[in-house]
Design a protein around this nucleic acid. Sequence first.
DNA 1: ATTATCTATAGATCTATAGATAATGC
DNA 2: ATTATCTATAGATCTATAGATAATGC
Lengths: 230, 230
Amino acid sequence: MPSDDRPARPGRPRAVPNGDSALSPRDQILDAAAALFVEHGISATSTRAIAERVGIRQASLYYHFAGKDDMLVELLTTSVRPSLEVVRGLESRVPSSASAAGALAALVVIDVETLARTPHNIGTLYLLPEVQGERYDGFRAERTELQDTYGRLGSLAADSDVAAAISPVRLGGILIQLAETVIQLRRDGAVEDADRDAIVATCLRACGLDTAAVADARREAASLLAAVAV
Amino acid sequence: MPSDDRPARPGRPRAVPNGDSALSPRDQILDAAAALFVEHGISATSTRAIAERVGIRQASLYYHFAGKDDMLVELLTTSVRPSLEVVRGLESRVPSSASAAGALAALVVIDVETLARTPHNIGTLYLLPEVQGERYDGFRAERTELQDTYGRLGSLAADSDVAAAISPVRLGGILIQLAETVIQLRRDGAVEDADRDAIVATCLRACGLDTAAVADARREAASLLAAVAV
DNA sequence: ATTATCTATAGATCTATAGATAATGC
DNA sequence: ATTATCTATAGATCTATAGATAATGC
């Protein structure tokens, strides 16, 4: 059996031995905090509960984090960062090498995919009242940047009737909300391909694209993403 | 001045006199709890904080409610109930006296309006993790009924391409989420007519309706609502 | 010596109950 | 007598710090 005892790190051993997590203690804590924050909320999660889930004593958390807030900040950033990075690359290609509709479709695909894969569905954390405090302005700014991109691409992609009726800011709010539908879906159960497809298509239709235009945009998105792919 | 001293009720007077609220003590408590739950979350709101906001002592809450849970249940129900009632009346008119698209438009208008007017934006409470517990099954069932109605009306109203691509359940999830965009908008600031219009139009477009069909549905919704009006 | 944990605990809550009290209403 | 409040408080947390300890690494 390949029971490799990973390079034992210095420090007093845990009262309850580590189990087999390959994660650093820091990441073990973040993972436990994420699961509990999502399930019970932030204030309802005690530092003791987090520690218990990790398998260490409550006080030991403070060696790694200043407190729950500190953990939260790190969790929040991981939940937008990936979309944001792809997005920054994407927008620069419009309209020279990509249509706005194609780029929007790609954005939605990426964002939905990121949210669908996020550990413990931490996208839900954004909805919690604690996160509305100034303490998290930095994170909210990143999310706003994402929303603005939705607004810009959406307005560019929009059919003239939609563009006339809905301002970019409003459209951005609606589109990001649509993409985030996936968060709610995950709450209720598994997210299937058909769910993702439905969300992407709805975002495009929200901009006034018809069935043919939707199909075109998706095709374009697929190749765009293949080009940017990791 | 019409400073009518409302019929003084029996009971020991408050240490800090009532101010001028026309609400019953029970409703004063609900109102304070709503504001604090929305702003800080449920667990982060102490019974002491609620009492303080009302202007009574912490222990006095327990004369009216068994605890925070008890208040929450009541708040949640007020936030769906109104939409639900109108909705039950609405659906029965399809397709005899109303088209599905017209009825869907009416549903969205009502729901958005209800959420836009709800005191302290208590629609946000639904998003909190505490509400996912079984304790609130009853409430969640009502919300599911609303979602199902969105799914049924949406699928009936849908253009054949959309109907083929998106199942009623999924469509219901997407549409209710769209309507609830108004909750997020309220978080950021005032909700304007243009916001409501944008949401209603987007729901219809999500079903594959084009500009002309959207306009028709809205017109129909207006007269439907006039007929059901309070 | 450094690192990562541990044990112990102070101080600050927070919830919910017991029992007293100050009004009204009969 | 009934009602709606009050005061006081027990018991259960919960957070964050101080200081000890058991490893590794030099």
